[in-house]
């Protein structure tokens, strides 16, 4: 593994559940993220996979300092975000960028593409006007768009092009890490491959790290070096790409895998199909959070919360089958 751009240590985010309008009272907590460790190496792509509502976007927002941590720490280049000065925060803003799922909502409809892309540079103030303009041209070309697009409004572009604009903006300040929160799931299948290729090329040429978030294993496969599988606010399995697809250990990962390979009946093992609803993070199941849906659940699974630990070299799992 390369040197870390960003690491998290046991981060937690609990949202209060507030009841009553006149006399508000916190009646509980949504444990959206409940003790997560991530390690993103320089120039590497970390995949983060889990079903809808498991807390992926919340992690992204925590890393982007859009939400405050409930507990734990985020370490950027060896320094805890909590100790950041204003200037550190400014540098961090330049270094960590994001692309979100829905380009319609990501691009301000009242701004021209040029202004959208250059915004990070303009608030940063290190480049002069000419420099900003050149940079906009460079990144537009890098994502495969005509530099003249800068003068148009985002509404004039197709969905795939909009997402390219969003990527161009994320690249503008020459960041070290880009958080990609389901960047292709809102796109047509034909566009997806193009965008994936684009991201891969960009990473190769710019050496930027990615945190790639998706809700299925098929999407992260192409890009990721290592993959984290998440369930209800916790990481349940983490290993490198090949290992994960050939040697999945956690029952949840196995279920996800078989769900992502619908055309290959041989690889689909009996009982691996995910059934039932995802439990609410407001009242997560006791013991192993997955036991309500796990095909291999044992009696103690509803009592004991499995520890997340390395069970094979470079391969960690949180499951009582391996403890």
């Amino acid at each position: 593994m390369t040197e870390a751009v960003l690491e998290t240590k046991d981060i937690k985010k609990y949202f209060p559940v507030i009841k009553g309008i006149l006399f508000s009272k916190t009646t509980g907590w949504v444990k959206a993220v409940d003790g997560v460790d991530l390690y993103i190496g320089t120039g590497e792509t970390l995949g983060l996979v889990g079903e809808s509502g498991c807390g992926k976007t919340t992690i992204a927002k925590l890393l982007l300092m859009l939400e405050k941590l409930t507990d734990g720490s985020i370490i950027f280049r060896g320094r805890d975000l909590k100790e950041f000065t204003r200037e550190d925060v400014r540098q961090y803003r330049k270094s960590v960028q994001a692309v979100f799922q829905n380009p319609l909502s990501s691009l301000d409809p009242r701004m021209k593409v040029g202004s959208i892309i250059s915004e990070p540079l303009i608030v940063d103030r290190t480049l002069d006007r000419k420099g900003v303009k050149d940079r906009v041209t460079t990144v537009l070309e890098a994502v495969g768009l005509d530099p003249r697009s800068a003068k148009a409004y985002p509404q004039e572009f197709s969905g795939g092009q909009k997402q390219r604009i969003a990527i161009a903006r994320a690249l503008a300040s020459d960041p070290q890490l880009i958080i990609l929160d389901e960047p292709i799931s809102s796109q047509d299948v034909s566009i997806r491959a193009q965008l994936m290729n684009l991201l891969k090329d960009l990473q190769d040429s710019m050496g930027v790290s990615f945190l790639f978030i998706a809700h299925d294993l098929a999407t992260v496969r192409y890009l990721s070096d290592r993959i984290n599988v998440m369930y209800l606010g916790k990481i349940v399995e983490c290993t490198n790409r090949e290992d994960l697809y050939t040697n999945p250990l956690h029952p949840y990962t196995k279920a996800l895998l078989s769900a992502s390979l619908p055309h290959d009946p041989d690889s689909r093992r009996e009982g691996d199909v995910l059934s039932g609803e995802v439990p609410s993070p407001l009242n997560p199941p006791t013991g192993c959070r997955f036991h309500t849906r796990c095909s291999q659940a044992m009696p103690e699974c509803s009592q004991t919360d499995p520890v997340f630990k390395e069970v094979q070299p470079g391969h960690s799992v949180a499951c009582l089958l391996y403890q």
């Binding site: 982007l64 859009l66 803003r93 960028q97 829905n102 909502s105 301000d108 990070p120």
Partner: peptide, 12 residues
């Protein structure tokens, strides 16, 4: 809207 969050990410 996401563009507001992204503006914050950009350091606005």
């Amino acid at each position: 809207m996401d563009y507001v969050a992204l503006a914050q990410v950009a350091g606005c």
